[in-house]
Amino acid sequence: MSNLPPPAPASSEARRFRVRSLWAGLLLIPATVLVVILALASERGTACVMQGTCADIPGPLYLATLAVALGALIWTQTTPDGSPPTPARKAGLATLLGADLLFLTLVAAHFTG
């Protein structure tokens, strides 16, 4: 037998924070699909696909926003159960949401720009 102390009781605030940040990260996929559908429903979006008049947004910009979002998601998911989220973890959630919104804006701008 080991002499390890019993694990700290899980903080409900930490669990709620983790669930919220997980939903913020996972909802990027359906939100992207929705933005593409809405963009293609417009006249400019259709012309983008049919005539090739899409805006020229560099691919590394998309990858950079996704990398920041993934890093922020990992940061927010590592909140320990025994303690409430720190201000740095809360800033990570704000960064995640900002990176998600920037990515969706870039996708919309590609089709309608």
Rank of each mutant, 00 (worst) to 15 (best):
N3V: 10
E43V: 11
G98H: 03
G92M: 06
A67K: 08
R89G: 08
V33C: 03
P9C: 04
W23I: 11
A99R: 06
I37A: 15
A47K: 09
A31V: 01
V35E: 04
F17Y: 12
T79R: 03
A31K: 04
A55T: 02
S21H: 04
R44K: 15
S21E: 04
L28Y: 00
L38N: 11
F17E: 00
S11Y: 08
S83R: 13
A8M: 11
R18A: 13
R20A: 14
P30I: 02
P58D: 03
A67D: 09
A67P: 07
R89L: 14
L22H: 11
T65P: 00
V36T: 10
A99E: 03
S2L: 12
P5I: 07
T105N: 08
G98M: 10
T79L: 03
S83N: 09
R89I: 08
V36I: 15
I74H: 09
L63W: 10
R18W: 04
L22A: 14
A109P: 01
T78A: 12
M1I: 06
L27W: 09
L93R: 14
V49P: 03
G113E: 00
H110G: 00
I29Y: 13
N3D: 15
A8Q: 14
P85E: 07
Y62Q: 01
L40P: 04
T105Q: 08
T32Q: 04
G92K: 06
A88R: 12
F103S: 05
L38Q: 10
C54N: 02
D56F: 01
W75G: 03
F17A: 00
L66P: 00
P80C: 05
M50Y: 06
L26T: 06
G59L: 13
L66K: 01
V68F: 07
F103N: 05
A14P: 04
A94I: 10
G25E: 03
S2V: 10
Y62A: 00
A10K: 13
S12W: 06
M1G: 12
S11R: 08
S2D: 12
A72V: 05
T86I: 08
V35R: 05
G52S: 03
S83F: 11
A24I: 02
G52Q: 01
L34T: 04
L66E: 02
Q51E: 14
P7V: 09
I74G: 02
A109W: 12
R44Y: 01
K90M: 13
G98T: 10
T53P: 00
L22M: 13
T95C: 14
A94V: 11
A99F: 09
T78Q: 12
W23D: 09
G45Q: 09
G25A: 15
T76E: 01
P87H: 11
D100N: 15
